[in-house]
Amino acid sequence: MRKIYADAESALEGLTFDGMTVMSGGFGLCGIPENLIAALRDTGVKALTVISNNAGVDGFGLGQLLETRQIAKMISSYVGENKEFERQYLAGELQLEFNPQGTLAERIRAGGAGIPAFFTATGVGTLVAEGKEVRTFDGRDYVMETGLVADLSIVKAWKADERGNLVFRKTARNFNPMMATAGKVTVVEVEEIVPTGSLDPDAIHTPGVYVDRIIKGTFEKRIEQRTIRIRETA
């Protein structure tokens, strides 16, 4: 039970400092660590570099940290859903590094796996490859990308057991498993903490070795694009 904390605030205690790098899981608003983002905002920590595929929306997700100007730099693949982000970026108040989504995912996977760099064909001949080493393997060009690690990873999973073994749900998995491996400290929020032994060991997505602290959160799970089909009437 050493890993289980009472709430998001206590789970971040002693982990935050100005200028730190934070990885934050999720794709769009799906599978984001809502509770830990809010708690990170409340710590008042400043000048964050945040590694996250997206930047939330105005007032929700990472949008909350943008509103309070706590983020100095974002490393992301797509940030189109956030007006405050746009304003700060155009005003030169926020640094931005775009990574192709697969390159971002692999940089995080590599960082967590102790691999300092790798070569990928993604981005060769584009702005993304500028200033980076390009090498040819079997007649094709590849650009070198470096692994990413963070001072802190905040992750959302569906269930955890008391030892930190994690199970994700549907497409809310996305960047969360890699980020869990790439944080010097990884804090996870889940919908349910279950007794150790109740998860099938064959069905665990992230083994507890990567998880330092766990909280049970409460979730709004906002939807960006609610698309439905109409039931044909008889």
């Binding site: 995080i108 939807i223 694009q225």
Partner: peptide
């Protein structure tokens, strides 16, 4: 509608019998 089940355009979708989920990596 399930907030944990979206496509790359962030639209809500559904699963079918052959569906499989995995990480971004």
């Amino acid at each position: 509608v399930d907030p944990d089940l979206i496509n790359a355009g962030k639209q809500t979708i559904t699963e079918i019998p052959e569906s499989a989920y995995f990480s971004s990596a």
